[in-house]
């Protein structure tokens, strides 16, 4: 069924089989009902006002039949859905645990090797993962259509989810529970890597900035962070406004705030915009930027500032 996305986890095939099964039963009933409806409406359409119609008020056999048949079918569907659901809710012992934090409006992933990523979840092909999730504010919902998994994130209570990615590739991650102004911008990617590539990533070889400050300039690091920390979801670098203002020509220019006051975008203004985005709101924009306090280090913020300075 190509209405469903590509099947990229061990659970996807089973879920699809359930959906298929329900689809077939539904189609049978749908066609049965529609055909009878249309057939009767044509065959028994009124020919004249004197048409004689029989006085039929019911039929016990039919009534019993169409009570029992649907009852049996729904019980079967229920049981099938339950069996697969049970599998979806039972993570294997050896699953790799990753902590997930949802907050307005970004995803943060914390791995066992101490790494943290934003909006990009790195996992290894054919290795089961268990996500231990919580929210820092309102309810969010972790949804990866290609894996057929979804689970709400709550504050004050951990929820979990597991899957085994089966295909190498990049898959869409959505927030499926309405969480405010930038709900539709709370997007991420799941990056499934081959075991070798994943090992390299785990050891940090793939990320250039890890190789030492010498090999990468602050501007380059800032540019990487712009992508990796998800700033690009809301800020462009070519001058077109998006959810947030574009960074092009930002540095050194005057910014009009919500209350009408004007400030010059210097280093401190940008720093504050990143750590306390709601403190000074740019006029014409919604207060939807997440705070990056505790996510970006001072060094990284300086790198972003350096990068913004280059965007003339």
């Amino acid at each position: 069924m190509n209405w469903l996305p590509e099947e990229a986890s061990n659970l996807a095939r089973n879920v699809d089989t359930v959906i298929w099964f329900v689809t077939i039963i539904s189609l049978v009933f749908f066609f049965l009902i529609t055909v009878v409806l249309v057939f009767f409406a044509i065959k028994y359409r009124r020919k004249s006002g004197e048409d004689e119609t029989p006085y039929i008020t019911g039929n016990h056999f039919l009534e019993t039949l169409w009570t029992i048949v649907p009852s049996i079918l729904v019980l079967v569907i229920f049981a099938y859905g339950f069996i697969v659901f049970k599998q979806m809710r039972t993570p294997p012992q050896e699953a790799l645990e990753i902590n997930v934090i949802g907050k307005q409006w970004l995803w943060q992933f914390q791995y066992d090797n101490g790494k943290t990523t934003i909006n990009e979840l790195y996992v290894q092909q054919n290795r089961p993962v268990k996500l231990i999730m919580r929210s820092e504010d309102v309810i969010h919902s972790f949804f990866v259509p290609a894996f057929r998994v979804k689970q709400d994130l709550l504050s004050g209570m951990y929820t979990y989810l597991w899957f085994t990615p089966t295909k190498v590739g990049v898959f869409d991650l959505y927030c499926a529970e309405y969480c405010g102004a930038a709900h539709s911008k709370m997007l991420g990617k799941v990056i499934v890597m081959s075991p070798e590539a994943y090992e390299r990533w785990r050891k940090g070889e793939e990320r250039e900035e890890q190789k030492g400050v010498a090999s990468i300039s602050p501007v380059q690091l800032g540019e990487q962070l712009y992508q990796q920390r998800g700033c690009n979801a809301c800020h462009t670098i070519d001058g077109t406004p998006s959810v947030g203002p574009s960074w092009k020509g930002l540095f050194g220019h005057e910014v009009t705030l919500q209350d009408g006051t004007k400030v010059t975008a210097d280093e401190n203004y940008i720093r504050e915009s990143i750590l306390e985005p709601q403190a000074k709101l740019v006029k014409g924009y919604q207060p939807v930027m997440p705070s990056f306090k505790g996510i970006l280090t001072d060094e990284e913020i300086s790198a972003i500032i350096a990068y913004i300075k280059t965007l003339k």
Binding site: L4, I19, V74, F78, Y80, G81, F82, V84, F85
Partner: peptide, 11 residues
């Protein structure tokens, strides 16, 4: 019926 079915509803 799809939505009442546990495994299908998750998706």
């Amino acid at each position: 019926v799809f939505l009442g079915t546990l495994a299908a509803d998750v998706h």
